[in-house]
Amino acid sequence: MKPSPETILNQAFAKLAMEIGPALPPGYSQGSVTTTAVLLLMTGQEFNRAADIRVKENAAMRTLFAEQAKAVSGTLGEQLRAQSATTDTDLTVATLDKGNAALKTTLIALQTHAEDAKLQPLQKRIAAMLQEFATARQIFLPAL
């Protein structure tokens, strides 16, 4: 798609933030236009990477669950086995989000289990995984 959505949104940001916003009188309308412009800039960043982030997160969680399913019994063990067997076939962001939410619910249960059972290496691994996820999902904003 050309122009790319990222280019369209970046140019829309520039138009609103640099031309239209400053032409408005200071106050609510000007502030809202500038904030809307920033939203477009951020949405441009997110558009390009959203599916990639979710596919990678989902894959990382499934790998972890497959390994841990061997060591965990009961309901959580079954949940881990079931979740590790899921796949991402529909790569629309909305569908990936649904799968991501189901996996993260299981991740919360697994992390709670690791804390209750004092499984230090597993706790560290999950904390590092969450840090990696959070780093990838940050939005970069220039100083304005």
Binding site: S32, T35, T36, V38, L39, M42, T43, E46, Q123, K124, A127, A128, L130, Q131, F133, A134, T135, R137, Q138, I139, L141
Partner: peptide, 26 residues
Amino acid sequence: PVMAFSGLYCLPYHNKVLADRLVEMQ
């Protein structure tokens, strides 16, 4: 738009801050 900004920018920002702190605690 401030509400959307909070969800899109501030939410991942604080997720990162907390994730870093949790790793530090580990």
